[in-house]
Design a protein around this nucleic acid. Sequence first.
DNA 1: GACGAAGTTATCTAACGGAC
DNA 2: GTCCGTTAGATAACTTCGTC
Length: 291
Amino acid sequence: MEASKIMDYPLYNSFTFVKGIGLKTEATLKELGINSWNDVIKKQCPELFPKRKWSAIWNGVNSAMDALKTLNVSQLTSLIPKTQHWKMIPNFIDRIAYLDIETTGLSPRYSHITTIAVYDGSKVHDFVRSDNLDEFPKFISKFPAITTFYGKTFDIPFIKREMGLEFNQIHFDVCFLLRKLKIKGGLKKIEKRFRISRGGLEDLDGYTAVLLWNRFRKTRKREYLETLLAYNNEDVINLEFLLDKSYNLLIRKEQLFTPPLELLKKKIKNPFQANKRVIGAILGRNTNLYS
DNA sequence: GACGAAGTTATCTAACGGAC
DNA sequence: GTCCGTTAGATAACTTCGTC
C-alpha cells in the first residue's frame, strides 16, 4: 500500500487508539501542533507534555503504521479499539466480504443455517445447505475483513456455533455504525430511509425466508430456492452501499478531513430473480402468521 | 423470548504536577 | 522524595436494540 494513501485515512489523524490517550489529550496535542501520525514521527515531545505519554503515543503510532501497511489483521485488532475499527474501512475497502445468513429460526440452539450469501464487491457467492455449505469456511478465510448487518450478535455467533468456525477478520457491522449516527431500525427500514429499492422483494422478510426454505425442502422446486437466494443476495449487495454511506456520514459527524468513499448504488445485478408467483403463494398461504 | 454487542452513566483508579 | 488535589481514562452495571 502506498504511504501517501495511508495518510488520507481517518485513523492517521487520531491518537485515541493509544491506551491512556483520550479525547482531551488528543485535543491538547492538536493545540500543540501535533495533528497527525506524521507529526509524531517527525517532531520531538512538546514542552510541558508528559514524556511517558509521548512515548506511549510514539510507540502506538509506529506499531499501527506498520500493521496498516501490511494489513496485519491480528495486530490491528489488538491495537485499535473496536469502537474505532470503522476508521479502517478505506484501508480494507477492496478486500471486504459482505455476508448474510438465512436460517430456520432465531435460536442457534434449535435452528440451523439454510443459505449464506457473500458479496465480494463484484460477484455474489451462494452457499446452500445440503449442497455446498461446507465450502464456506475455506472461502471466507480469504478475506481480511467482513461486513454484516447485526452480524456481531446474530450471523457470526450462529455460524460459530453451527460450523465451529472462528472469525479472525476485522468486522464492520453496519447496524452499530448507524447507531453511532442515531439511525436505528432493521435492515429493511434503513434501506427504505436511504431509498434503496429491493426490486420485487419488498414484501419478504426473515420469516418468509424460513417458509421459502421449508417449501423448497418439501417440493424440491428450484423456484423456491431461487427466490430465497434472490432475497439473501439482495441483502449483501445493499450492504456495500450502506457501509460506504455510514462511513461518509461518520467522517462528516466527527469532522474528519478525509476523502469520502464513492457511493455506488447497485454496482451489480442480483443473479437470482424473485418469482412473483412463489412470493404470492408464500404470503397468501400464510397471511394468518403475520397477524 | 433469548442472546449478545454497543451505548450510557456512575464510580473507581492512576497519573500528573505543585508545594514542601 | 512524599503528600495531596485535580484531571482524565478505565471499568462496571445497566439499558437498548435487532436477528429469523
